[in-house]
């Protein structure tokens, strides 16, 4: 299951989707919204995705993970829209016969989703907003 959703992510449901009776391990990564960035208070985050391409890119990442590790199940759900600190932005769950594969595959998937999937977030502070990583820090902070 790959899902880009405006609704709150049901973490338990993502875990169940990735689970398998043959699995001895289910590994889950839950990415949440921090309340601080560059020592400034984050009021909320705006997430947006190029949905069709994001799903296609995440599918490629999962295919690569399934080729590298012995996976029995997997699920990725990414939230878009307005998120407040503490809310869940992304969940990755994978299952495998033994724990090593699950740990490694889960990290591989979230690292690559962050690096490759066309998804963006804007941090909104008390004094304005900034698209994360869009520009060098010095340039964006002077803006």
């Amino acid at each position: 299951m790959i899902k880009i959703t405006e609704k709150a992510i049901d973490v338990q449901k993502v875990i169940e989707t990735a689970s398998s009776l043959s699995a001895g391990a289910v590994n889950v990564f839950v990415g949440t919204v921090r309340n601080k960035s560059h020592d400034k208070n984050v009021v909320w985050l705006e997430y947006e995705a190029y949905e069709a391409m994001a799903v296609a890119e995440i599918r490629k990442i999962i295919d690569e993970a399934a080729h590298k590790w012995d996976l029995l199940g997997w699920a990725v759900s990414h939230r878009i829209g307005t998120l407040k600190p503490g809310e869940v932005a992304v969940v990755v769950a994978v299952s495998s016969p033994h724990r090593k594969a699950s740990f490694e595959a889960c990290q591989f998937i979230i690292d690559n989703v962050k690096a490759k999937a066309p998804i963006w977030k804007k941090e909104v502070f008390e004094d304005g907003g900034e698209w994360v990583d869009a520009r060098p820090i010095s340039a964006s902070m002077n803006n």
Partner: peptide, 10 residues
């Protein structure tokens, strides 16, 4: 055609 600035998902 889509413009893809630095991504920042997760």
């Amino acid at each position: 055609i889509a413009l893809i600035p630095p991504v920042s998902g997760g």
